[in-house]
Design a protein around this nucleic acid. Sequence first.
RNA 1: GGUUCCGUAGCUCAGUUGGAUAGAGCAACAGCCUUCUAAGCUGUGGGUCGCGCGUUCGACUCGCGCCGGAAUCACCA
Length: 595
Amino acid sequence: MESILKGKVKEAIRILYNSELSDDLIQIQETRKDFKGDFTLVVFPLLRFSKNTPEKTGDTIGQYIVENFPAISGFNVIKGFLNLEISDKWWMDFFRSIASDNDPLRKCKVTRPETILVEYSSPNTNKPLHLGHIRNNLLGFSLYRILAACGHNVIKTNIVNDRGIHICKSMLAWLKYGQGETPEISGMKGDHLAGKYYVLFEKDYKAQTEELISGGMEETEARNSAPLMKEIREMLLKWEAGDSEVMALWKKMNSWVCKGFDETYRLLGVDFDKIYYESDTYKIGRDIVISALENKVLYRNPDNSIWADLSSEGLDQKLLLRSDGTAVYMTQDLGTAVLRQKEYGFDKCIYVVGNEQNYHFQVLKAVLRRMGYKWSDGLYHFSYGMVELPEGKMKSREGTVVDADDLIAEMKETARVVSLQLGKLSDYSDEEKEEIFRKIGLGALKYFILKVDPRKNMTFNPAESIDFNGNTGPFIQYTYARIKSVFRKAEQMGISYDSLIPSELKAGEKEIGLIKLLRRFTDTVSEAAAGYSPSLLANYCYDLAKEYNQFYHDFTILGDNDQDVRNLRLELSKVVSTTLCSGMWLLGIEMPERM
RNA sequence: GGUUCCGUAGCUCAGUUGGAUAGAGCAACAGCCUUCUAAGCUGUGGGUCGCGCGUUCGACUCGCGCCGGAAUCACCA
């Protein structure tokens, strides 16, 4: 519609003022709520053609468009703004076209689909997932759904950071204090078990360094010479050398942890098409670095370490292989990227990783480009902000983290309490109820996270918990359940309906308002895909639900005696419900039929 | 110190090529269930859009300079 209007404005200027207009001077936007009209043309930029006041100019153009474009039924000019009113018939025709289409996402497809890898989650196998990972997983998964809905070929991938000194920490502590404890024996989830020993290690290590410091040692030296640090270095060396005992322990504990992760992913409703392990890819990275060194893209220090000099790009020197030949974080990511390009030939690779690693990804891209990989242009760091607690950042070492499994369980529990209080599900079986509590609890959590602009840091207050009223997931789910309820009632009453609504039917303001909002859905999906922004969709769903609830409150649907009106309201309700369902589906949020 | 990001109501957040009187929710207060689900709807109060200068017919939005906060600049990941 906007583009048609633009054409009409262009035509008007040509005929009225005999001037050719460039597109960027035509600003058409949706009319603000407090004014009458549907689309607004900003006339200020056109004054140079009309050589007249904003009011006169708007008036003249408005007149022309109304006379020459039947879809526009009227106009008004306020200060420099020409508000064009679209005829009810046009809106009704539009509504009929979407009402007969069952899939609101059909029109979102891009003309040139791409192959896009989305990497998210990237956990370390030494501790369980926390709220930060939840934000990561939800963003990554939603991004996948949105891009896939637009017709792209999207591959969900995960890179498991399963090697390195931090992994050895939980292993060493388990060896020392574990007494053969397993998830089976303790009944503890594997990732939580490993996390317990990781914390134990950190605690003892801290005690040791503090003791050395109080004995008069420098802090850095104390950290390096603490007995536990020595032991852990030995263990890492053994791991790198492939020592069979260490490898067996590593495999055993990692399998516990990964099993625990799988459970959390399942609860959260996210999954992956391909999982990479750092323990595999770091070797590829090492080979790449060495061959790049031979091609003189990198340089070697006297101590044998290998570096990239990125100072010409405003970055620093970056270490890629240690003097002892072992790999660092960057080495692994280089290897993973090259492997992925080889396996999938992606156009884009989106890394869903926290903003603390902005520098890392800048360097990663620069190094790959320097190495001659042209596809490195397609790497994109989807950088999201931290989730903070009211008292500041979460720190797993200090135990001030919000555990993912706990939070998910708490949300479901809250949903149960709220739901039972309202007591609307008394005729459901326990199993059915549990399923609804799950959907609502998770819906609240997911919406809470996804409605916020990903780039921004956000605060989570565990004491206040997550709301179920107002701008929340359950509010939108409730709107959906309400509509479903109307249809159950309609069936009981033997009321049938169809999308054959007469286009000359006079719809009310609220109904037209809903149709206008519905029209924005496909654009919102496209914008969310282009801008990698699930929050746009979350906010859209809220607006739509809010508008529908007002409509629902003000008008009766089944009670209206005019069959055409009832039909329209039922169809409108149906399209709102499918649109809400699609929008929330793109966020990874399920909708309950009742609540 | 360098680089990047953020600063909007008491709190949590919207506000996307610059556009009209800056919007929601929570919290507070006042109303609305004999009627399709009240997890809803309606109303009241609450703002120097961190501060200043500039560009513009027009700035929360763009530029520059301050102030405040975060992240990062490791032979950690």
